[in-house]
Design a binder for these strands. Structure first.
Lengths: 246, 246
DNA sequence: TTTTGTGGTTGACGTGGATCAACGGTGTAT
DNA sequence: ATACACCGTTGATCCACGTCAACCACAAAA
């Protein structure tokens, strides 16, 4: 079901130009020459074990990260102890952009499985993007894409009901797995129901019930974190429904 | 109650260096020399009448905009006709950053009152930010700040109840008016209850009821769009409350 | 193998906010 | 001055989702 993604031997440096994530990651759209120059930028790689933090809110911001393998969640902690998951990130996606504004990380990034990131020193990124135009453009696009994505989540949280939110979530996951060469119809969620609930502004029980309902309706097959999408059209119909809310 | 903000005579070009919004806008944190160079960047100014669009979703992206006077809302239209307001912008704030990613605007920007923006051609911005380091840094910070802001809204939508949302909204407005030299305690909202509701993921009736409740409790005085905050501490307490949701 | 813990499911019940509806106030056009 | 939108308020009712609670499945530890 999955396309094999070659995993790097620990410590062996893999240049961007040889990385199979190029067209998902920062280098997307850059010329070969430009990508070669990136290799001076992406120095260290860092392994993060499941449940460990890549960074925490309040820590000084020095680098952004590209996910080389694995997946993460980002969350913010409210004063009263509640946690709000602001995103789930997969291979090729960038982490840490929110830290640029204050030079402090504004959220926590936690690995959902054993993962590896490429560390991109921010001052070097600024320096290099002054001379490599493609890098400058791509970096701006990455940031802008994050803004657009966030607006999508705001729309979901502001105007969709529980089942629509979950349908949108599943379709989004499916689409991102597809882009990574995995099956669009069958995948493994790395996050808990509670994390999904936090992200979608729902309680875990509501998430669980929606999963069950989708299963009863023949839209998906659920077995714990393993999801099989049986009726993608049916799911899509759910989110342009005429029902109301918010 | 307000500090007078000199309004430019139509057509008279005002350089960034002479603009009283410097410390709220893109030039914030840049050196005098650097700011002088911005003047070649900010060419045209554009006036937008109340209810008119600065741009619409789907239009080609060519420029970002700094609000010189007035205020705007941004919204996205869902397939089924529902509208989600993604933000309200005031003087000195930037519009259009979401368009960079796809080179198409991804939302609509509508003036909430007669307004004026500085047009910043995006290709010129890229060019100039390659040579003016302060500009590069500030631009990145502006984008990053937008991401952080969006995460804040996601948190609000995902985990707060109606009254907390409105309290957070009022405190945020108050703080932004303050930063612009207006009163923290008394201001005029330019948007309707419905627009506030859309932004906060609530129906206009709920917004209206929350306003009334706050008034009954002596937290604020409401007269249509005119708001007077009577108990800012009380409002703040509301949002770190122990009540539950989401 | 049994134990323990964490995560997931399901049911019963309560409630915050949506919905439906009527009415009042304010600004704009005539 | 009057009419007409549009906007805002308020009440009555309903329902989606939160809450509380019991139970189950699976994985890691003993």
């Amino acid at each position: 079901m999955k396309v094999t993604v070659p995993i790097t031997v620990a410590g062996l440096k893999v240049a961007c130009s040889q990385c199979n994530l190029v067209e998902l990651c920062l280098p997307y759209g850059m010329s070969e020459n430009e990508i070669d120059r990136l290799d001076e930028l992406v120095g260290a790689r860092r392994k993060i074990k499941r449940q460990q933090h890549l960074y925490r809110a309040g820590e000084p911001f020095e680098a952004i990260y590209a996910i080389r393998a694995g997946s993460f969640k980002t969350d913010v902690l409210l004063e009263d102890g509640r946690e709000q998951v602001t995103g789930f990130q997969m291979t090729g996606e960038m982490l840490g952009l929110d830290g640029i504004s204050t030079e402090l990380h504004s959220c926590n990034a936690t690995a959902l499985e054993d993962s590896e990131v490429c560390v991109i020193a921010y001052n070097k990124l600024e320096e290099l993007s002054r001379v490599v135009e493609g890098l400058q453009l791509q970096f701006h696009k990455v940031m802008s894409r994050e803004i657009v994505r966030d607006h999508g989540v705001m729309t979901l949280l502001g105007s969709m009901r529980a089942e629509e939110r979950l349908a949108a979530f599943l379709l989004n996951m499916s689409q991102r797995f597809t882009a990574r060469g995995f099956s669009a119809a069958e995948f493994h969620l790395r996050m808990t129901r509670e994390e999904i609930g936090s992200y979608l502004g729902l309680k875990l029980e509501t998430v669980s019930r929606a999963f069950s309902k989708f299963q009863d309706e023949g839209l998906i097959a659920v077995q714990q974190k393993h999801i099989r999408i049986l009726d993608i059209v049916g799911l899509k119909k759910l989110i342009q429904h005429p029902s109301t809310r918010g």
